[in-house]
């Protein structure tokens, strides 16, 4: 595989995360090793509580590991301060949330601009929205957009900074198949055009077909990794 020849953008070693609530300890991650290459599209599957979201949060700089190492290129995330993590997210990571998390008081264009205002080398907000097929809905407020449209605005917002990494947590969770496909198309376009390493968490097994690699989580560990010899186009999947 071409991807394996390149230096990994992420290197994760023996990552563990323990949540403590009183006397109760919850082991969310129990020693995860993982690597992702630049430009790779990885889908992460697994039942609820399997640790995939915790993994994504730590890789995204939102949560701290209990033990283990996470490297982004040559930066060790696990040793970063709060401020460094903020800068890491600002400069390198694009997030797509389960519930879109758009600012309701800003239009689509303005929501994207929110990120381009603080990014180092952003594309124009309009350009990002074109990429996800929303060039005609620039001045609509979130309340005036459908769920799929809102999620595509969220993707546009995530990619407008030209991130090296795109992290998506259940991006099609609330969407019907047809709308979901459009969101996946947008994700694949971005992955292809910008070369952003894309990690997608989903419960939706149908989505696995569009990934380069499928990682299966279970009980805080990676239980299996499958490489797709042939990726499907987004339009070819449905659920």
């Amino acid at each position: 595989m071409l991807m394996e020849l390149e230096a990994p953008i992420f290197r994760v070693r023996a990552l563990a995360k323990v949540y403590r609530s009183g006397d109760v300890e919850v082991h969310a991650l129990r020693g995860v090793d993982f690597e992702a290459a630049a430009g790779e599209f990885v889908v992460m599957l697994g039942p609820s509580g399997s640790g995939k979201s915790t993994f994504l949060n730590i890789v995204g700089g939102l949560d701290a590991a209990t033990t283990g190492e996470v490297w982004f290129e040559d930066h060790e995330l696990t040793g970063m301060s709060e401020r460094e993590l903020t800068l890491y997210r600002r400069d390198h990571v694009g997030f797509v949330f389960q519930f879109y998390n758009l600012v309701p008081s800003l239009t689509a264009r303005e929501n994207v601009a929110l990120v381009t205002d603080i990014a180092r080398n952003p594309m124009r907000a309009e350009e990002a929205l074109e990429l996800v097929g929303l060039g005609a809905r620039l001045d609509h407020f979130p309340a005036q957009l459908s769920g799929g449209e809102q999620q595509r605005v969220a993707i546009a917002r995530a990619i407008a900074k030209r991130p090296e990494v795109l992290l998506c947590d259940e991006p099609t969770w609330a969407l019907d198949s047809k709308t979901g496909v459009r969101v996946l198309e947008a994700l694949m376009t971005v992955n292809a055009d910008l070369g952003a390493t894309t990690l997608v968490i989903t419960h939706n097994a149908a989505i696995r077909e569009i990934a380069h690699r499928v990682v299966m989580f279970g009980d805080g560990r990676i239980v299996s990794v499958a490489v797709n010899e042939r990726r499907l186009a987004a339009a070819d999947v449905s659920w």
């Binding site: 401020r83 400069d91 990571v93 949330f97 998390n101 309701p104 990120v115």
Partner: peptide
């Protein structure tokens, strides 16, 4: 709060 936390995730600093 939800929006503000989202902004933090997107890379806005606490100060911002």
């Amino acid at each position: 709060g939800h929006e503000l936390a989202s902004l933090r995730v997107l890379g806005f600093t606490r100060g911002e």
